[in-house]
Amino acid sequence: MKEFSQIISYSLPILYMVVIYIYYLIFTEKTKTLANKTTPILLFLVVCHLIEIITRSIAIDSMPLSTTHDAYAFIAFSITLVYLISEIGIKSRGAGIFILSFALILELLSSYNMSWEPETNPLLVDKTFAIHASLSIMGYTALSLAAIYALLYILQNNNLKKRNLGNLFMQLPALNYLERMSSRSVLTGIILLGIGILLGHYQAHVMIGEFWPKDIKVIVSDVVWLLYVVGFVFTSIKKWRGEKMAYLSFYGFLILIVGGGIIIYMSNSFHKFN
């Protein structure tokens, strides 16, 4: 099982690249034939990724969310899955190349750095952890998507303003759709991440007797979540929208990712509570 899981893990980025290449061909209008076939292709990719997650879980005998790399892989999977659902809904494939490229970066970070040793930390095999980690990751996925949609909004707005009505303009969805998707994703991210963080605190309280453990990741996550909540409430009251909101959403996420990424890389496993 371990070998099989490893083969899938290492081939997954290649599969992502093939799918992205197909989206590139569609985006640059080099093919029209493939444009109607992306949904089954993407579905195949999602199924392969799901198999990888399941087989890895069996191979390491624990939930595959216990390491940073697993978390990246799970975010990549969630992004691809959410994109697949939205593509079926709006029948527009223009955003695919951007969203899947982002998923590929996460998948690359994940696939070639994975540890195949079974998890021994009792904190990470706890069931509450599984829910906490899943919700947190889904929250991050939603926030990632919000940032991607915001970036696409900025691009499309720029196209319309500067009359760049080429391939990029034609392939991207309508402005109001991108705006709606971005703000909905932010709200979804805030809710999921909020519940995930709360469960994390509860788990810490049960396991180590501290509701607010002095862990830098916990502190950063709390601060980032709080900033998102404040930002969301503020912009909703002020009725901010359009370009201004897109920039805020995109740069807000960049700060989160850069900050969060640096901190995650500074530690070896997800939560080492000293």
Partner: peptide
């Protein structure tokens, strides 16, 4: 068509 690219 342009209107559709703004409002869908």
């Amino acid at each position: 068509e342009l209107a559709r690219k703004i409002f869908s």
